[in-house]
């Protein structure tokens, strides 16, 4: 095998390995952030405060990730996480605030 051919094959292998590392890195990052969002969703649910769309957003994020659309997947996951965090804050605030609305 001449040196030019070896160089071309090496370059292709390098590109392939880099792509695989990138995709697997994204998948790992996605799994980590998905698990974090899931924990927050469960916390919101335990407080009886989960919002309607949070679960749907996470399902959609999963589908996008499975299709390799990582930008869309992360964007949906961010929205789900924001919803879960806000729902938890809402529940914490309401723990005292509801009393002020009681008709007296």
């Amino acid at each position: 095998m001449d040196r030019a051919r070896v160089s071309r094959v090496s370059m292709r292998l390098l590109v392939l390995v880099t792509a695989l590392i990138t995709v697997s890195g994204c998948a790992t990052e996605f799994d980590r952030r998905y698990a974090a969002a899931e924990r927050l969703q469960a916390e919101a649910a335990a407080a009886g405060a989960e919002w309607l769309e949070t679960g749907k957003l996470m399902d959609q994020a999963n589908k996008e990730a499975a299709g390799g659309n990582m930008d869309a997947a992360f964007s949906l996951l961010d929205k789900a996480q924001f919803q879960a965090e806000t729902a938890i804050k809402q529940a914490e605030y309401e723990a005292d605030a509801w009393v002020n609305r009681v008709v007296r």
Binding site: W98, R101, V103
Partner: peptide, 21 residues
């Protein structure tokens, strides 16, 4: 039950009481 009724919830941040009182 009373607490549920007066507690705001959801993305619209509404309690039952907001609409029905």
């Amino acid at each position: 039950g009373k607490r549920f009724y007066y507690t705001k919830r959801g993305q619209l941040n509404f309690a039952c009481a907001d609409c029905h009182i």
